[in-house]
Design a binder for these strands. Structure first.
Lengths: 138, 138
DNA sequence: TTGCGTGCAAAGGTTTTGCATGGCA
DNA sequence: TGCCATGCAAAACCTTTGCACGCAA
């Protein structure tokens, strides 16, 4: 599960920052800046490469934004292993909703059975419009 | 509905190509290349600007892909009212599958009704593992 | 003639890669 | 020592913008 590798200051401070902000979604740039402000300077390249590793290791979730905007990353908390758990992200206010829903399991099952594809709920984010924003835009 | 404007060869051949490939997803690059091969050369800039207009006019649907990949465009056929169309992306080989599936509509309906969130299938990409990669990794 | 449309070139942004150096084990 | 990790600079990538010219109406 963990890609072996050496222990370094950079890896430690990046993972640490993500854990401390597990309720937020941060861009690679946010992370670079926050570390610099904290006196824990890490090169931009290293931030990207570390995030890539963490995503591969399933420790971090990556949110793909529409082109032009930068991707967001968020630490995957320990308890989040249940497969009925998934995420909704509002395109307008950016709110991230965590939902437990058996309907999602039904979809995953259906896709596995009929389309031969194993959906990873931890990595998947459904984009749309939340109730609040839908109201405001009427 | 239609942003007025002049009639030009470029607009015509681009819309024509999209109509003839209404069952496929084309990137701006695909379109540029296909037109060039067909002897109907159109500048890349014009392709982008024309697609932008078509999307604004609701004649074409734009699929935002994860960063790094280019956006896809597809002509919206006359009778097409429901959006049961969505995307699966393999974490390993990067394959992008386009799927028509009513189960997805059921999920969207459920989420709208029970969670007050309007899922945008056009922007949503489900991540996971495709059949081929699942086989190779066993 | 008027002003939208076109397309080259260059800029814009995020992310990746080449390569020499640094540092863990 | 051996190999992974780092980080600067440069490249790659898709897309947008500046600007002069072309062309529809």
């Amino acid at each position: 599960m963990n890609s072996a590798g050496y222990k370094t200051r950079q890896k430690a401070v990046i993972e640490d920052l993500l854990i401390k902000n597990a309720d937020r979604h941060l861009t690679a740039d946010d992370i670079t800046d926050m570390l610099k402000e904290g006196g824990n300077d890490v090169g931009r390249t290293t931030v990207y490469r570390t995030l890539e590793r963490l995503v591969t290791d399933n420790k971090v979730r990556r949110f793909s934004m529409p082109q032009g905007d930068s991707a967001c990353y968020q630490y995957i908390s320990a308890g989040e292993t249940c497969h009925e758990h998934f995420h909704l992200k509002c395109n307008y206010c950016g709110a991230l909703l965590h939902i437990e829903c058996e309907q999602m399991s039904l979809l995953s099952e259906h896709i596995a059975k009929h389309h031969g594809f194993a959906v990873d709920n931890l990595k998947t984010v459904l984009y749309g419009v939340c109730q609040k924003c839908a109201g405001e835009r009427k």
